[in-house]
């Protein structure tokens, strides 16, 4: 029973965080805040991607056999040149799995 209460507590806390601003439809942000919110996607996504490439297992991996880094750099190049989401995902994933396979990092 205690565990269920804990789960309900987590539900309430998580939901209230996600609903925090949706709850106030009449709220209009000041110009400065609105300007700042424009930077949320780029800042957050970059902050997830870059450590994911450089520290895929939680430790620095500036190594030539780091497929996350190499395929990630390739994906960045594809994205910058084509601005095409699907091409970036496909190119990045193909390169990633080919590299992992070549490095003997796949469990096959």
């Amino acid at each position: 029973m205690d565990t269920w209460l804990l789960i309900l507590g987590m539900l309430v806390i998580t939901f209230l965080t996600r609903y925090s601003f949706f709850a106030w439809p009449r709220l209009r942000f000041p110009h400065l805040v609105e300007q700042g919110l424009h930077y949320v996607p780029v800042a957050v996504l970059t902050a997830i991607v870059v450590p994911g490439m450089l520290m895929p297992t939680g430790e620095w991996a500036l190594r030539w056999d780091n497929a996350y880094l190499l395929a990630g750099v390739l994906a960045i190049v594809i994205a910058a040149l084509t601005r095409h989401l699907l091409a970036t995902i496909a190119g990045g994933l193909v390169a990633f799995f080919l590299l992992r396979w070549a490095f003997g990092q796949l469990p096959i």
Binding site: P41, M53, Y68, A75, A79, A80, L85, T88, L93
Partner: peptide
């Protein structure tokens, strides 16, 4: 998990 990295790159870089 690289699928997430590639997708986020494809969204963020442009």
């Amino acid at each position: 998990d690289f699928a997430m990295i590639a997708t986020f790159i494809g969204i963020a870089v442009p």
